[in-house]
Design a protein around this nucleic acid. Structure first.
Lengths: 137, 137
DNA sequence: TTGACACTTGAACCCGAGTTGAAGTCAAGT
DNA sequence: ACTTGACTTCAACTCGGGTTCAAGTGTCAA
C-alpha cells in the first residue's frame, strides 16, 4: 500500500488553500501533525481529505471553532447537533440575503436621475424599516 | 415646520444601531455632521433616513466603501454601477450558500454513527472537490 | 560549494467594522 | 452643591482567519 505522503505544498495545492492556512489549521488542532521528515511536514491522504472537508464547512459559513467541534465530536449526535444549528442559521442567512437582494434589485429599477437616498422605492423601504423599529420596542 | 433635531442616542435607537457606530459613520463621512448644540450632535430626520439606508445596503453585503460611493455618487449612473456590481456578487454569493446548504443538509441525513469525515455522502463530495482542483490546473 | 528551492519557526501584522475605556463637558433635577 | 445621565474626544482594542516577515535548515543538481 505504502500510501504516498504529501508535503505541505502538495497538499495545500491539491486542496486549493495556502500553505500558511495549513500550518494555521494544524496549530489550531484542525489537522493532525501527521509526521516529519527532517523537520518537514508529511501528510497522509486522509489529511488531504480532511482539509477539503474543512473547506466545505467553511463555505457553509461555519467558523473554525464549529468545525473543530465537528471534527472532534465523539459521536454522530454531537456533530449533527452543531450541523443542524448551523443549517438553520444558514437558511436564515440565505433568506435575509434574498430579501436584501430583492430590495437592491428594485432600487436599480429607478428611472430617474436622483440620488439613491431619494429614490421613492428606497424611500418606501426606509419607512418600512423605521416603522418596524418604532413598533418593535 | 421646525423639524425636530435628534440626539445621537435617539437617532441610533430609532435606526437600531449603536451610538458608537453613528460616530464611526460620521468619521468616515457616511453621515453629515449636521449640527452641534453645546458640543453635542443634533441630526436631521433626513440623516436618520440615511442611516437606515446604510443599514439596508450593509444587509445586502455592501462594504462601507461601496456605500460611501453610492451616497456620494454624482449621478444615478454612478451609484447604479456600484449597485449592479454588488447585485451580481450577491447573487453569486446566495447561489454558493445555497449549494453549501444542500451539502450540509445532505450530510445530516447520514444514518450511521461515524465521524463526519467518514460519512459516505461527504466522502463523495470531498472526492468531487478533489477532482475539480486536479483538473482545474 | 554554490545556488536554487521548498520547507521550518515565532512573532508581528492585515482587514473591516466597529467597540471600549478614560477623562472630560454640559444641562437638568434634588 | 451635587449627582445623574447623556453626551464629547482620542487612542487602543476586539475578532476571525489567516498572511507576511526574518532568519534559519535540508536536499538536490551543476
Amino acid at each position: 500500500m505504502a500510501e504516498p505522503l504529501l508535503t505541505i505544498g502538495e497538499m495545500a495545492a491539491r486542496a486549493g488553500v495556502a500553505t500558511s492556512a495549513v500550518r494555521y489549521y494544524e496549530r489550531r488542532g484542525l489537522l493532525p501533525a501527521d509526521a516529519r521528515e527532517s523537520g518537514q511536514r508529511r501528510y497522509k491522504q486522509e489529511t488531504l481529505r480532511r482539509l477539503v472537508f474543512i473547506g466545505m464547512l467553511q463555505d457553509a459559513g461555519l467558523g473554525l471553532d464549529d468545525i473543530d467541534g465537528i471534527l472532534h465530536a465523539s459521536g454522530a449526535a454531537e456533530w449533527k447537533a452543531i450541523g443542524t444549528r448551523r443549517l438553520h442559521a444558514l437558511d436564515e442567512h440565505i433568506a435575509q440575503l434574498q430579501r436584501a437582494r430583492d430590495v437592491l434589485a428594485l432600487a436599480l429599477l429607478c428611472r430617474y436621475d436622483h440620488p439613491a437616498t431619494e429614490c421613492h422605492i428606497m424611500g418606501a423601504e426606509i419607512d418600512r424599516r423605521l416603522e418596524q423599529t418604532q413598533t418593535a420596542q
